[in-house]
Design a protein around this nucleic acid. Structure first.
Length: 483
RNA sequence: GGCGCUAUCGUCUAACGGUUAGGACGGAGCCCUCUCAAGGCUUAAAUACGGGUUCGAUUCCCGUUAGCGCUACCA
């Protein structure tokens, strides 16, 4: 049975890279009818925060993918300690009584790399037991088998055969002097106990994996399969950090920016993975069907953002694609909260009427604020009355057009075809081009030149509002035009 | 410093050792058109560098360079 896990530690908000790790695990589980496990790796009590935990759940809930089993490492400490002591008892680990201060002092002075404290490593068992019994504090270190073994090896499902000389692996800690397990110990103990079949995680753990293989072996457990993912980096090549790159690294930034959860999933999949067949806009099911570890590549991927714009242009495009693919009713429901947030007096019915008109013109849900404002406004905000003047026309033409429009709209049938016929006839009568006819009307009712198609817009706005706004527009025309 | 990983258009990526090095985003241009979008078409843009191996390297090997990761009683 295939079992995978996402194991964030609650020491910060949910990061874009973590979200991708979650998604890849989830996809792998669903593709193979496996089990997706969420495990909170909260063994570092000093750094854990509730805010961070909330942010992780917030983000994961927004993604909407879910998980099958849930664990918290802090509730499993007994298991970690038990297994660590089991390794100590078997002689594969030893107590290191070097005081923390001395140790950090030493390490900073060592050129090259630190491997172990020979004196502690060779300490006879009886003396070790005696000092421990006397209450002296110690950390439990794994005794890397440098004498009996040349190297540690494993096959990474993404990076291939990996091998590292035992001479280059330091005697890492299993238990801290406060008795709590280290990350390596807790993680492997749980992975073993929860019978994980695959560990899919960031490439920053690739070199840690040699230590993990050693722990699994010490536990007498066959190591799971490993698959490491290339890292997500900033445009300048540095790793994404909140301090340096701000909110771009947080999942909630995309949520609040009006991205669909699925867009985010789709976008993240394209960073470091490819279906190899040029498909990019994919549904959730298509992603599940296409996802394989063979499709994951090995080089880091840049999230393309700038200081002015935190959103990757490709994500924006993908979002527009998915917005257009949404049934109008669904889109309308998603748009409603963003419209209200923008301060519009929006109700479901009105939003539903407007949605088809802006659906192809917005790339994020948030853009409803700028795309649909004039539909909700009671009075149009002030605009430049020069905009009322048509191309190759003048204020007189604008006045004539607006007066004619006012006249027509009194009696015209308020439907796309009715308005189309009536307004085109009006243009012919005034001997102006249709564009010259439509622009003043558009500006009069929308307050700007860029807006959805005119007839549909007029229909949604309604006769009364249209006539009122045209009257107001006429009042704003330069006095000279009215002669 | 040591160890490890990586290197194709600006970005994301494709290419059983044999392709005019493909696609997408973004850019530019044209078409469509009541504006804006959407859509269609066109276009600029890449194999880090140096050596091998081979009839032939983006692809395999070595080196250089660059970037990243690990090197904690953080995860």
């Amino acid at each position: 049975m295939l079992r995978v896990r996402f194991a964030p530690s609650p020491t910060g908000y949910l990061h874009i890279g973590s979200a991708r790790t979650f998604i890849f695990n989830w996809l792998y589980a669903r593709h193979n009818q496996g089990t997706m496990i969420l495990r909170i790796d909260d063994t570092d009590v000093e750094r854990n925060t509730q805010t961070s935990l909330d942010s992780i759940f917030d983000g994961l809930q927004w993604l909407g993918l879910g998980w099958d089993e849930f664990y918290r490492q802090s509730e499993r400490l007994d298991l970690h300690k038990k297994l660590a002591n089991q390794i100590l008892a078997s002689g594969l680990a030893y107590r290191d009584f070097t005081p923390l201060a001395v140790e950090t002092e030493e390490k900073t002075h060592i050129e090259g790399h630190w491997i172990s404290h020979p004196a502690m490593r060779e300490l006879p068992r009886e003396e070790s037991d005696k000092r421990a019994a006397a209450g002296e504090s110690f950390v439990v270190r794994y005794r890397v088998p440098r004498e009996s073994r040349e190297a540690v090896a494993f096959t990474d499902l993404v990076y291939g055969e990996q091998s590292k000389a035992t001479a280059d692996i330091e005697d890492f800690a299993l238990l801290r002097s406060n008795g709590l397990p280290t990350y390596h110990m807790a993680s492997c103990a749980d992975d073993a106990d929860l019978r994980m079949s695959h560990i899919i995680r960031g490439q920053d753990h690739l070199t840690n994996t040699f230590k993990h293989v050693l722990i699994f072996e010490a536990l007498g457990v066959k190591p799971p399969q490993f698959a490491h993912l290339p890292l997500l980096i900033a445009p300048d090549g540095s790793k994404l950090s909140k301090r340096k790159h701000g909110p771009v690294v947080s999942v909630t930034t995309y949520r609040d920016g009006g991205f669909l959860p699925h867009t985010y999933v789709n976008f993240l999949c394209l960073l470091g993975w490819s279906p190899k067949d040029d498909r990019e806009v994919m549904s959730r099911q298509e992603l599940i069907d296409a996802f394989t570890l063979e499709g994951v590549n090995r080089s880091n991927a840049t999230v393309n953002f700038t200081e002015e714009d935190p959103y990757d242009p490709k994500a924006v495009w993908l979002n527009a694609e998915h917005i257009r693919a949404l049934p109008a009713e669904d889109l309308s429901a998603l748009l409603l909260p963003f419209a209200r947030e923008a301060g519009f007096d929006a109700d479901a019915a009105r939003m539903a009427a407007i949605t088809p008109l802006i659906r192809e013109r917005i790339r994020t849900l948030r853009e409803v604020a700028t795309a649909a404002d004039f539909f909700f406004a009671v009075e149009l905000p002030p605009y430049d009355s020069n905009e009322l003047i048509p191309q190759k026309g003048d204020a007189r033409m604008a006045l004539a057009v607006l007066e004619k429009a006012g006249e027509i709209l009194q009696t015209a049938e308020f439907s796309h075809d009715g308005l189309d016929a009536a307004l085109r006839a009006g243009a012919a009568e005034l001997k102006v081009k249709t564009g010259q006819m439509f622009q003043p009307i558009r500006v009069a009712v929308c307050g700007r030149k860029v807006a959805p198609p005119l007839f549909e817009t007029l229909v949604v706005l309604g006769r009364e509002t249209c006539l009122h706004r045209i009257e107001r527009a006429i009042e704003q025309l330069p006095a000279g035009a009215i002669s």
